[in-house]
Structures are given as structure tokens and as C-alpha cells.
């Protein structure tokens, strides 16, 4: 019997008075492509950030690849993991940000090799060869020595995807990867993501691109006010939503 790659159980997260996540439970299965949709403030980005531990959950638990994230259970209490252990757990996930967050003082190639060289301590020539292959995969072989400021938004985001893949993650997290892009550049990033989905990568994608969700997602999860309202096959959730809130959201977006 296969186990879920990500198991989220009764997770809550508050920012002061604001409840960003309320009692969220969810499984993500190996190889699955999941799209999270919902209005801004619905908690979908926060959920991704909790899985990557950029945000720390207030209660509940998240297991990645069978391992509890951020804390260790010992004699009936939870103890926070050290920064080093959290860093090790983060290596299992790759994160792609809305605003790319490439390192501006490093070239495209240097952005990609930074993690494998500095964090994983791998061999330089091996890492270089892989980085060049990754750049080819995202269609940017010619841009290896360009700085982020010399690249278009779509190119930057593709480098950012390559940077995340260079760490060989089991799970890729995409936080609105096309929201900061000019409309004509969205397609090139989505194409790279589709190719990645086809290769069998497990992906969680926060997105407003319903077309992408319909075409690529195995499952669509609709969130509102910090809770999962509805989930299921893309054709069901997007085509024939059962919940009133989902219907209202979809009719507002399309």
C-alpha cells in the first residue's frame, strides 16, 4: 500500500488575530499534481509555506515522506527541531516563489549551483553538468551567464524552477508562479511546469490559472477563509462545483 508523500492533519496557523488556516487536513500522493485555488487570503499560500517551514504551524502536524516536520515527539511532548534539522527537511521540497526571488548578484548558472554546492556539498563538475542540463530542460541554455536583471520575468521564473529542481526534491511547491508575469510570458512557465508534471514530479501549485489546473491537475482543492471547501477531480470541481462558495468564486474568476 502506498503512503501519502505529504500528510497534513488538523493544521492551524494564526497571524495575530487572523486565522490563516483552520483545522486543515489533506493528503498528497506520490506523483500527484494538486492545484490549490481560492481568493487571496484563503490560506492556500500559507499552507504551502507551512509545508516548506517558511511559516511555523501553531497546531496539528505535517508529515513529509513519513517524517514529522519541524518538531520531534518525545515522551508526550513536542520539541522543536534545530535549524540544521529543519534545513535538512527543507531539502526534500523545492519552492518556486511568486516573485522569483533569484539571487540578483549571481548569474542564472550560479543561482542553480548555489544550493547543491554550498548546502549539499556535492562535487563541482557533477553539479555544473546537472545545472547545464536543467537550463536546457527549461529552455535557457543560452542564458547560463546572464544575471537575473538581464532576463525577462518568464525566464527568471524558469531559472527559479531549475534552481529548485537542482536540489532533487521529492515535492515541488509553486506559489502563484505566474501571477507576477506579463500575460505573454505565462505560457512559457506553464509549459515547463507541464513537462515537469508529465515527468512524474509530485507538485502542489497555488494558481489562478484555471486552464492549467483543468489540463494538468490530478486534483483541485478550493480553499476559502483558511479551510478546504471542496476538492476533487479538476473536471468536477471546476466544471460542476457542488458548494455554493466554489460556484461563486469560479463565476467571479472566469
Amino acid at each position: 500500500m502506498t503512503k501519502p508523500l505529504v500528510a497534513i492533519r488538523s493544521v492551524a496557523k494564526n497571524f495575530g488575530e487572523f486565522q490563516a488556516l483552520k483545522n486543515v487536513s489533506l493528503d498528497v500522493w506520490p506523483g500527484e499534481v494538486m492545484c490549490l485555488i481560492g481568493a487571496s487570503g484563503s490560506g492556500k499560500t500559507t499552507l504551502l509555506r507551512c509545508i516548506n517551514q517558511l511559516a511555523v504551524i501553531d497546531s496539528g502536524g505535517i508529515w513529509l515522506d513519513g517524517e514529522l516536520l519541524g518538531v520531534r515527539e518525545q515522551s508526550g511532548r513536542l520539541h522543536r527541531l534545530s535549524e540544521r534539522e529543519i534545513g535538512r527537511q527543507r531539502l526534500k521540497t523545492g519552492m518556486v516563489f511568486q516573485r522569483f526571488n533569484l539571487f540578483p548578484h549571481k548569474t542564472a548558472l550560479e543561482n542553480i549551483i548555489e544550493g547543491p554546492l554550498q548546502v549539499q556539498g556535492r562535487k563541482s563538475d557533477e553539479v555544473h553538468a546537472e545545472a547545464i542540463e536543467l537550463l536546457r530542460r527549461v529552455g535557457l541554455s543560452a542564458k547560463a551567464d546572464s544575471y537575473p536583471a538581464q532576463l525577462s520575468g518568464g525566464q527568471q521564473q524558469r531559472v527559479a524552477i531549475a534552481r529548485a529542481l537542482a536540489m532533487k526534491p521529492m515535492l515541488m511547491l509553486f506559489d502563484e508562479p505566474t501571477s507576477a508575469l506579463d500575460p505573454e510570458l505565462v505560457g512559457e512557465v506553464l509549459a515547463v511546469m507541464k513537462e515537469l508534471a508529465k515527468s512524474g514530479m509530485t507538485m502542489m501549485v497555488v494558481t489562478h490559472e484555471l486552464g492549467f489546473a483543468r489540463e494538468v491537475a490530478d486534483r483541485v482543492v478550493y480553499m476559502d477563509q483558511g479551510a478546504i471547501v471542496e476538492q476533487g477531480r479538476a473536471s468536477d470541481v471546476l466544471g460542476a462545483p457542488r458548494e455554493e462558495r466554489t460556484k461563486a468564486f469560479l463565476s467571479a474568476v472566469i
Partner: peptide, 14 residues
């Protein structure tokens, strides 16, 4: 930008 710090954390940096 705070995003730089997050990107560094996301590739496992302390």
C-alpha cells in the same frame, strides 16, 4: 528583500 532570505532558506541554507 525578505524574499531573498526565504529563497536561501528554501534551498536549505541556515
Amino acid at each position: 528583500d525578505i524574499g531573498q532570505y526565504e529563497a536561501a532558506q528554501a534551498i536549505g541554507m541556515g
